[in-house]
C-alpha cells in the first residue's frame, strides 16, 4: 500500500511539475482572491480585523476545489482509466498517493497564501508561525476529504458543479477547526483543542478513504 501510494504521489506531482497548472493557474488565482479579500476589508481595517484566518481558509477552499478537479481530471480520460485499471493498483494505496500529492500541492500553495496574508491582511508573522502545525494538519485533512469526494463526483456528469455541493458540508467542520486554531494562534484562545479536532478529522478521512476508495472507483 505504501509503495503504491508513493508511486501514485510521485506520478501526480511529476504531472503537476510538468504541466505547471499549479504554478501558472492555481497559485495566481489564490493570490488574486486573497488580494480581493484585502481590498474588501480596506486599508484601515486590514491590519486590525480578526477576519484574516477566515479569509485565508475561504481562499484555501476555492483553491482546493480547483486542485481536486485537476487531480481527478488527469485520470478521467477513458483510455487512461481503462489502462491504469488493468495495472491492478491497490485502491487504498491510490487513495493515499493522490491525497499525499494533493496535500503537498496544498501546502506549497498555502505557503504562498500565508506569506500573502502577512503582507495583504497584515496577520502577525509570529502568530502565523505558531499556527503552522494546525494549518498543516487541517490542509492534510482537506486533501484526504477532497480526494474522497473527488472520486465520488469524478465519474458523474457535471462533476465540477457536483464536487463543491458534495464536499463543502464535509469541509465545514475542518474549516471551522482550522480557522479557530489560526485565530487562537493570532489573538489567543484554545489553540490545541482545535488542532486535535483537525488531527482526528485527518485520521478519520484517511481511514475512510483507505476502506472505501476501491468501492468508489468500482462504482
Amino acid at each position: 500500500m505504501i509503495r503504491t501510494a508513493l508511486l501514485v504521489a510521485g506520478k501526480d506531482l511529476r504531472i503537476e511539475r510538468r504541466s505547471r497548472v499549479l504554478l501558472w493557474q492555481v497559485v495566481p488565482f489564490g493570490v488574486m482572491a486573497l488580494l480581493l479579500c484585502g481590498l474588501a476589508l480596506g486599508p484601515q481595517r486590514a491590519g486590525h480585523s480578526s477576519a484574516a484566518p477566515g479569509l485565508f481558509y475561504i481562499v484555501v477552499v476555492l483553491v482546493v476545489l480547483l486542485m481536486i478537479n485537476r487531480s481527478h481530471g488527469v485520470e478521467s480520460t477513458p483510455g487512461t482509466r481503462a489502462s491504469v485499471a488493468t495495472l491492478g493498483l491497490d485502491p487504498a494505496g491510490v487513495f493515499l498517493g493522490k491525497a499525499l500529492a494533493l496535500a503537498v500541492e496544498l501546502w506549497l500553495t498555502s505557503a504562498v497564501l500565508l506569506a500573502g496574508s502577512v503582507v495583504v491582511l497584515h496577520t502577525a508573522l509570529h502568530g502565523t508561525l505558531v499556527a503552522l502545525p494546525s494549518i498543516v494538519v487541517t490542509l492534510g485533512a482537506l486533501a484526504g476529504a477532497g480526494t474522497l469526494y473527488g472520486a465520488l463526483s469524478s465519474g458523474a456528469n457535471g462533476s465540477a458543479t457536483l464536487l463543491p455541493v458534495l464536499s463543502l458540508p464535509a469541509f465545514a467542520p475542518l474549516l471551522i477547526a482550522g480557522e479557530r486554531s489560526f485565530s487562537a494562534a493570532l489573538y489567543g484562545g484554545a489553540l490545541w483543542e482545535w488542532w486535535v479536532i483537525s488531527l482526528v478529522a485527518l485520521a478519520g478521512y484517511l481511514a475512510v478513504g483507505i476502506l472505501l476508495y476501491g468501492v468508489l472507483e468500482e462504482s
Binding site: V74, T77, G79, T80, S83
Partner: peptide
C-alpha cells in the same frame, strides 16, 4: 473483476496514458 483486470491488457483507441508524462 479487479483480479481479472490484472490479467488482461487493454489498448484503447482514445489513448491510454498520462499526456504530461
Amino acid at each position: 473483476r479487479r483480479q481479472l483486470r490484472r490479467r488482461v491488457g487493454w489498448l484503447g483507441h482514445e489513448g491510454s496514458f498520462y499526456d504530461d508524462l
